[in-house]
Structures are given as structure tokens and as C-alpha cells.
Amino acid sequence: MRAEKRKKKRKVFFIILTIIGLFVLGTGGYAYYLWNKAASTIASIHEDLGKSDKRDKQVDVNSKDPIAVLIMGVDEREGDKGRADSLIYMTVNPKTNKTEMVSIPRDTYTEIIGKGKMDKINHSYAFGGTQMTADTVENFLDVPVDYFVKVNMESFKDIVDTLGGITVNSTFAFSYDGHSFSKGEITLNGEEALAYTRMRKQDPKGDFGRQERQRQVIEGIIKKGANISSVTKFGDMFKVIEDNVKTNLTFDDMWDIQSNYKSARNNVIQHQLKGQGTKINGIYYYQVDESDREAISDELKESLALKN
């Protein structure tokens, strides 16, 4: 079986939990303020995404249709449009209570839809923004993208500092960008968390190891964020969201997902795209094994209740 089941409870809707804090909006004396502030924040970060050609009709989260979400970690800096250096495709099926996730390596060699050329998948964002990235991922995996959440990787730093630091469990010791990280449980500030998620070349697992560290930081943010009680920290967090996040999810979508899909968080299946590094015209690419890509695509379609 290609998928590796992880028994550890994962709060699958990490973007919703991390970025919006939806699970904690109904608690404490600030509930009314937070609810309204969250709704206005979501409205301010909305970005449209065209309907997928791989769907006959729009999904309905209120009816508990299986959904597909593309998580995009974009490394945008001043004067640079940026690239989608972290791409996680996620299906959530509340009827089977399963969530499936696949991380797409940034150097994956594939057709860039709308550009008419083969290139690294993370270049799709530089060429055509969110829409071209979603179209390219759809073509690569042969599955629809219903929703996306785009997060500027720089915002990790601001979020972590707003929370007062987070704890992660490093699987090995390394140094990167002026910071040293020991093996085992460590506490990170914002600058350290950003460096921790960016290191790639020293990792024995390469880009896959970097993706695991990104998930560790996200989970650390969720754990710390669940205990926020200060309205000042919430205010700071909403500001970070407005500056660094875009999504086509509406506030109502998020509420329906939180209400109807949360049971799927306890059964997460992780997929890894097998392949090998290669050089084409002197440039490094990750070439995914075609049979493995097709097998994972079939499993994702099954999760979405789509015909193969």
C-alpha cells in the first residue's frame, strides 16, 4: 500500500485553525468581537479561483461533499513575485472520515498549464499566480482544486512571534542561515522558525524533509494558538492574516467545514510522490515516477468520490 497511515491525531484543517482561529472564536469574553473581526478579515483576504474543469458542478460543503484544498506556501519578497515553494494537495471526505494529503516537491518536472512549456511546478506561480498554479496541479494529479489557501512563508515569522514562540521536535541537528538547531524538542522564535522551514540541502530527505519540518511548525502554531486568550494577540494575528494570506474560502465555507468535516481529522493518509532527480539542459528537476503518480491520482479520486 502506497499510503502511510499515521495514527497521531492531526488537526487537518491547520490553515483554518492557524490562520483564522475558528475553533476558539466562541470562547472567552471577546467572542462577539472576535467573530465579527474574523468575518471582516476573511472578506478582506478573498481571492477568486475559477471553477475546476474536472468538476461537473460546484461542491457543496453544507451537503458534506468531499472537497479538495490546495495549500500554497509562497516565498514572496520585495521586488520578486515569488514561487510556490510548498504545495500540499489535500482531500477531505466527511462521509468516509478520511483525509488524504500529498506534498508535491517544488522541483517536480511537469507541464505548466497556460504557459505551454515543461518546467518546475513551483515556477507556475511566478508565471501566472494562483490560477496557473491550481491549473497546473490539477493537470499534474488529474484531480480538481476546489479551494486554496495561500500563505506567504514570511508570515511564519510574524505568527510565531505573535504567539511568543513554538515548540517542535527536530529529528537531527543542523545549522542554517545563522541559526543552530539541536536534535530533539526545541523552542523557536519567528526568525528561527522561518530558517527551520527553509533548510533543504542538508536534509537527508531533501525537499520531503523540508516539507515535514514545515508541517511541524504549522502544528506547533496550532498547539500554541489554541491557548490564546489575549484580545491583543488576536488583534495582532488578524493583522498578520490580512497581510499574508489569500483564499477563495468564504467565512460561511469555513464554518461549514469546521462543523461538518472535523471528524476526518483523525484518519490522515499521507502520500509521497516517488521519483528521482535528473538534469535537463543542466537544470535540476525532480521527475516523478508515472505509475506512482497515476496510483496516487486514483486514490485521490476515490477519496473525492470521482470516477477514475
Rank of each mutant, 00 (worst) to 15 (best):
S291L: 06
F23E: 14
K117D: 11
D107N: 09
K64R: 15
G21L: 00
S170Q: 07
R106S: 09
N267R: 07
V160M: 05
G206Y: 02
R215L: 11
N169H: 09
N97C: 03
K262P: 00
S63A: 15
T171G: 04
I113K: 14
T18Q: 05
S103Y: 13
A3W: 03
K51F: 03
M118G: 06
K11E: 13
V102C: 00
Q258C: 07
Q270C: 01
L273I: 11
Q258A: 15
K8Y: 02
N260K: 15
S297M: 01
K233D: 03
T232H: 01
N227K: 12
N267M: 00
D146Q: 07
Q58P: 02
S230N: 05
N122T: 13
E242N: 15
Q287D: 15
E290I: 11
L194C: 08
G79H: 05
H123E: 02
R83D: 01
K274V: 07
E78P: 03
F251G: 03
Y261T: 06
V59T: 14
T110G: 09
I88T: 12
N227C: 00
E78V: 11
S303N: 13
D298F: 03
V61M: 09
G225C: 02
M237D: 03
I296T: 06
Y176T: 01
A305Y: 00
I269Y: 11
D252E: 12
V288T: 14
A305D: 15
H179I: 05
R213F: 04
